[in-house]
Design a protein around this nucleic acid. Sequence first.
RNA 1: CGGAGCGUAGCGCAGUCUGGUAGCGCAUCAGUCUGGGGGACUGGGGGUCGUGGGUUCGAAUCCCGCCGCUCCGACCA
Length: 439
Amino acid sequence: MRLTRGFIPTIKETPAEAQIASHRLMLRAGLVRQTSAGIYAWLPLGLRVLRNIERLVREEQDAAGAQEVLMPTIQSADLWKESGRYEDYGKEMLRIRDRHDRDMLYGPTNEEMITDLFRQSVKSYRELPQTLYHIQWKFRDEVRPRFGVMRGREFLMKDGYSFDVDHAGAVTTYRKMMLAYMRTFQRMGLKAIPMEADTGPIGGDLSHEFIILAPTGESQVYFDAAFEEMDYLSAGAGSFSHDKAEDLERFFKQMTTNYAATDEKHDTAKWEAIAPERRREGRGIEVGHIFYFGTKYTQSMGASVAGPDSKPFFPEMGSYGIGVSRLVGAVIEASHDDAGIIWPDSIAPFKAAILNLKNGDPACDALCESLYARFGGDALYDDRADRAGVKFNDADLMGHPWQIIVGPRGAAAGKVEMKRRATGERLELSPDEALARIG
RNA sequence: CGGAGCGUAGCGCAGUCUGGUAGCGCAUCAGUCUGGGGGACUGGGGGUCGUGGGUUCGAAUCCCGCCGCUCCGACCA
């Protein structure tokens, strides 16, 4: 994308309403604009990041054997009356009435709907297990939305739902999802830690929330240094596969025996049992939450299937959520400096920014154009007539992992300068070498 | 939901107390110079002062209602 043609409205001054770093930077770098309290429009740069996060989530869900569907945002109240949650959910649920005076709602979550879809079509234990997910906008009418997209009323969530024959099967699925989550967060450059959690209105008795570490996080967290050392992506010895029961067992054991707790559940005695040099504490942001809740919905909604003995039984369910739009803010909280955002390569809106320091200089223009063409759209070309300082500042603010800096001296010598945003490291290279380095 | 605050140009704000021609910085447009970390000069454009009512010769300013947004606390992907 050419910056002169792009809709990327960066702002120099801090908007008055933005209190935390990610919100401030998302507005300043032109990722989002607020349209009303807790509701945001995603601009091209922000949308590219959102789509990249979706892509990683989708890849890991698919790899773990979940299947993607897409359920509507608007639901009929009837389903929620069946499960009993229509009354329980309270004012967080946005209730709507259609022209025929039917009670509708903007979905805050989809347990009822997925259970309804399941019971319509699945009739036998032989079709189990099934895990279905979708990535869809949700609405929860928070009393006090804040922190930009981290705590909006409308937000994009990956929510998945599993159906298993029995408790053992459901627990295996739960562990599989936990592994998929750890891999997903690691790929985004985040240190995530699963922590035992309350189940809240979803119900059930086994639940973990996934907290990522960021200095500005909302809650205080305590954990064993073991979590810092874990690698969920490697293929070598000690690696984890979704498909091997013993791997999942070993993985889950490591996740649950190493100490990890938020301040609400912090256990001082257990904490002090950890060697002092292994104790870690910091601030955390919740970016995911998984639940096992058994037959709560299959039972209340009559979703039974035939077992091997031909007798009907209620499948065991779990649900698995990742706050996709929240992650955009959470990543920024975890990765920024005074100058702006520092995107991990995996979710950056562009692989690199090309900074033409002297727009109008024939050598600079020609070199930039040829570089830009070779990126095939994966670079942001700053072709504005502005001075160098403006371009440096905007590139730092937008957080591109690499900056390819083309100035008159370098261009004359056929060289470009590369700056790595995360480290500030600078290299002088030929255009070919620069492209090779970015890959 | 309890408490507090703010709505004036795209953004950040002053002006409101004490009523009298709507301002400043940045951004923007045209031009000249400049050119490696938000440059300088010259000249322009842009406002139903959130909204409805009231008081007054006269309201951004005083009074009443409404709407929107933000912050603190209790609750959450």
